[in-house]
Write a protein that binds this DNA or RNA. Structure first.
Lengths: 184, 184
DNA sequence: AAGCATTTGTAGTGATCACTGCGAAACCAT
DNA sequence: ATGGTTTCGCAGTGATCACTACAAATGCTT
């Protein structure tokens, strides 16, 4: 019988636990109980809680970028064009939990709670840079348009979380993100 | 010497503590130490922690609506017109802490943490209804436009919290919220 | 198989969490 | 001033927090 617990396994379990209860409810004790192991094992791989949370959030972003990269394959002109292709991808029930965790982390960052305060702005900066690569134009233009797209997507997704998918879709249509008003 | 601690005083202290550390860091013990009283006094007025948090969030919204009502005095046609008047009011350093707390609560709500999960959607619904009263048109139109405005404002303010005011202003300009692109 | 680094369990650290029992102090009405 | 209600402090509840000391178990290398 080899070593039973790898870092990847524990991180996967931490992701699942975060989806269930939120990152802020992620504790060594709870995660250990969930995985049926001693919390000492978790601490061995993630010396501090900040390490655990950081890796959870970074892993979340990697997953999401992998899902979005295909639809961003061709260069867009501006944030409107990008929003039109991105919205159908992110506004789905299967994707919602990922953004729920991002909103949780973002809110805690805004409130000044560590480690989110130090971590999330760097992640967001990375997102802006990453999205800017799929936009054509000058560096400044790409950066601004990417940030604009992210702002609108975040706003719509937050509305989706708090007021439901129908309301979010209506707002998206009003912003010209969801295509022309279609008759039903 | 009369009773020294009123409910309003404690709530005010709770607000201040939340601004400093976030609602999620608000505890009976910390608030008591901050106010120099026994935590028993706080529990007397706010039997459970949920009560305390609820009142903090509700009070926050009342303050903000009072600040926004004057600029929304006249009926707007749609979310764009409303955004143009609202953005200069909310995108200020003095207002940021209020929204930081709302984002914190919203994120925790999205992550499924009580009492935020039960509380925040109701607050958001109230905001949509409240903002809709300043828009002309049919009930459905007002509701949709109000939700759209809130989504865009939230997205821009979240960007402001995480990427800084300059980036948020550039995004706002790109969305036509901050007036025509002005030469400098 | 021997030696050594890596991995894991048991048990426990002090701190803090939300919350309580109880009695005393402060206030009000009479 | 007396009785009753409201307000409040002291001390403590068990639970959980992040984290640690220590040693045994395990695996790799030789």
């Amino acid at each position: 019988m080899g070593y039973r617990h790898t870092k990847a396994e524990i991180l996967e379990g931490a992701l699942a636990a975060a989806f269930d209860d939120g990152v802020s409810q992620l504790t060594f004790g709870r995660l250990a109980k969930r995985l049926g192991i001693s919390d000492r094992v978790i601490v061995y791989y993630f010396p501090t809680k900040d390490d655990l949370i950081s890796e959870v959030l970074v892993g979340l972003g990697v997953e999401l970028q992998a899902a979005l990269a295909p639809v961003f394959a061709s260069k867009a002109a501006d944030h409107v064009e990008m929003l039109r292709v991105a919205w159908p991808v992110v506004a789905r029930d299967e994707v919602d939990p990922v953004f729920a965790l991002f909103f949780e982390a973002s809110g805690l960052a805004a409130a000044g709670c560590e480690p989110y305060r130090s971590l999330v702005p760097r992640l967001v900066e990375g997102w802006i840079e990453w999205a800017g690569d799929f936009i054509s134009g000058t560096a400044a233009h790409r950066r601004t348009e990417a940030a604009t797209m992210i702002a609108v997507i975040d706003g719509l997704l937050l509305l989706r979380q708090l007021a439901g998918p129908e309301m979010a879709d209506r707002a998206a249509r009003g912003l010209g993100v969801l295509g022309p008003r279609r008759r039903r």
